[in-house]
Amino acid sequence: MDLNFNETWLHKINPTLKLFTMILMFIFVLFVHQINWLINLTFGALLLLLVFSGHPKKRVSLLLIPFLIIFISTSSSMILFGKGDTTWVKWGLVHITEESFYRGLHLGFRALIFATFGLTFALTTRPVNLFYSLMQQVKLNPKYAYSFMAGLRLIPIMIEEFLTIRNAMKVRGVEQERGLQAFYFKIKSYSIPLLSQSIRRAHRIAVAMEAKRFTGERDRTYYYKLGFSLNDGIFVAYLGVMILLGYYLSVVWPLFPVGDVRY
C-alpha cells in the first residue's frame, strides 16, 4: 500500500491552532440553521480537502465513500419521521414533509462538513507533531502527551497480536460456529488476551520511563520545536472568507427556497 503524500501548507499549520480552529468551526456550524449557507460552507471545506490535502485524488475519493453513506443514513430518519406541516408523502409510519425533508438534508450536510474537517485534520497532521505542539503551545502535561505517543506506537503491536491469536486458533482447529454463544466465545478469546497483554506492556513502558528519569515536569526541553507561521494566518483567513462568502452567496443565489430548518 502506497501512503505517500506531498506536504502542503495545510501540513505546516501549527497543529494546536488547527485543532482549536476546527473545534470553533464545529461549534459555529452547530448554530448555522440556514441550509443554503451550510451547503456553501460544506463546499468550502471539501475544496480545502480535495485541493490542498496533498494526498492523491484517488485516495481522498475512496475515503469519501463512507461519507456518502453517513450522509444518507443521517438524513433519512429525519426525512422519513420528522415533524412538518406540508405533507409530501404519507405511507404508514413514514411521513415526509417539506420541512422534514430540508431538515434531514441539513443534517446530512452537517455530518458531511464535520467529517470533511475531521478527515482534513487526520490527513494533514502527524500525531507526534500534534502532541509536541500541545505540550508547547497549551502546556499539556507531558505525562499525557508522551503516554499518548507511546500508546499510538503500540497499535501495530496490537494488530500483530490480533493476527497471532487468529492464526493460533486456526492452527489448533477452532471451528467457526454461529450463534450467540459462539459470538461470546469469540469476543472473549480475542479481547482478554489483547487487553491483558496491552496492560502488561503499558505497565512495563511506564516503569521503564520512570527508571530513565521521566518525571513529567512541564519545564523540559523538546526535540521538535513548533511555533507559528504565515500558513496559520492563511488557514484562519480561508475559513473566515469561507464563512462570509458562503453567507453572501446563500443570500444572493439560494439553492433551496427555505431559510431556518428548525420546526
Binding site: 503516554s147 500508546g151 499510538l152 496491552s198 503499558a202 505497565h203
Partner: peptide
C-alpha cells in the same frame, strides 16, 4: 501516576480502534 495514565491511554487507544471499526457497522 504515569503508570495509571499510560495504562489508561493504551486501553483507550485499543478501544479507539474498536470505535473506528464500529462506525461502518453502525451506519
Amino acid at each position: 501516576k504515569l503508570t495509571d495514565i499510560l495504562v489508561t491511554i493504551v486501553i483507550a487507544i485499543g478501544f479507539g480502534i474498536v470505535y473506528k471499526l464500529w462506525g461502518p457497522l453502525y451506519y
